[in-house]
Design a protein around this nucleic acid. Structure first.
Lengths: 214, 214
DNA sequence: AAACGAGTACTGTCCCGTCTAGTACTGAAA
DNA sequence: TTTCAGTACTAGACGGGACAGTACTCGTTT
């Protein structure tokens, strides 16, 4: 099982090199020669595995988009679902943040946004698999909490989006414009943002009586 | 005054063409020949006005970034500053939204994010002149409202950022991944988002007693 | 006259994708 | 285990085209 055969190994090296280069230098900024050299593979091998530069790019990104599918799904499923909604939300928000703020995912976000005009279907796939999927999960979650009287949401879709961006917006939007090599936000800052986001969210969508205020 | 001289007119045409092409096709996706042709100008003239492709790009974007400085400044200054904070906030949020959602500004956001690795100082300039400057304006505004007892903000910086992204996040993040030629959000949807953003904001940062809930 | 600009050809570079000639691996038969 | 065919891989060259930036000639504006 560890044995993959030579071809698969080569292909893996190509994909790995391509990922690194595409995410760092963008589509136009990456040449196939670079990919081949970086993968310690001849250019011919690259073209044996991928018909095109476009194909290499889209297959790679598409596959990566698919990989993201699932970091928060099990988390919501396996959520403690205690009655301490604030604690649950904060834990989840913090976890969500630490995933989305992974440098490789931030780079991917940048590349996809930058190429959104040239690869619109890719951008769509990413958007649907990322923000939209998250929002839908949140919406069902909040709907359930609403029915248990632990939240008060008239429009679960809207609340879900608000929650998502309350948590993510500040650091993600900063990361879009800032160099990613240094650490942008410390763990403590992310903690603080997650906590405040949850506080704001609960102030607006908490159960009727409780106005949590610090 | 309307007369600008031939040179200035040519230069203007070049900048205009370059803006259109760079914002639509990105930096690498735009050639100097295209710019010249689109400006009805010879390539030599382009190089008489701008030493470089890089220079053309950075000077253009930098100048555009400078232009944005001021759409909301006068608005806050000339704000009615009634005691109906919710109304003021909602009007302002709606106005802010309609500016930031202008297609050309969305395109600029895309390009800057996409080239953030290759033009980090540009990305920084944009970030400072956009989100950071907005947040600082909001912060002083909220601070003043706090002192008048119309808001309750312990951390004006944080509140300002939260407000900014509560209003903008949903449509802006969608616009990053979606084709910009068709209209993404109707005026009514933007109204709704602005209203909900203000509601959430006031629930969290409104004056102590009032829990505005719909 | 003097500067400016148009038009166009040109240089050098980069890069995609292909081709060729030769080498290494793999798996099965002898 | 050795042999051997078939396949994968290497290294490098190359055609074709795009493009940044320059050179040069001739017309136009001021």
């Amino acid at each position: 099982m560890v044995e993959e055969g030579r071809t698969a190994r080569k292909r893996g090296a190509i994909v790995e090199a391509a990922r690194k280069l595409f995410l760092r230098n963008g589509y136009a900024g990456t040449s196939m020669d670079e990919v081949a050299a970086h993968a310690h593979v001849s250019k011919q091998t690259v073209y044996k595995n991928f018909v095109d530069k476009q194909s290499l790019f889209t297959e790679l990104i598409t596959s990566d988009i698919g990989q993201i599918e699932g970091p928060e799904h099990p988390l919501i499923e396996g959520m403690p679902h205690t009655d301490d909604v604030e604690r649950d939300l904060r834990l989840f928000a913090r976890h969500h943040l630490s995933i989305v703020m992974r440098p490789d995912l931030l780079r991917m976000r940048r590349v996809i946004i930058g190429e959104a005009d040239r690869f619109p279907e890719l951008a769509q796939a990413w958007y649907q698999n990322g923000p939209v999927r998250s929002a839908m999960l949140f919406a069902t979650w909040f709907q359930a909490l609403h029915e248990r009287g632990l939240l008060h949401v008239d429009d679960p879709e809207m609340a879900a989006q608000m929650f998502n961006w309350l948590v993510l917006s500040i650091p993600v939007n900063c990361a879009m414009a800032c160099p990613l090599d240094e650490t942008l936000y410390s763990d403590e800052e992310l903690d603080r943002i997650a906590a405040e986001a949850v506080r704001v969210f609960l102030a607006a969508y908490g159960p009727k009586g409780s106005a949590s205020r610090r």
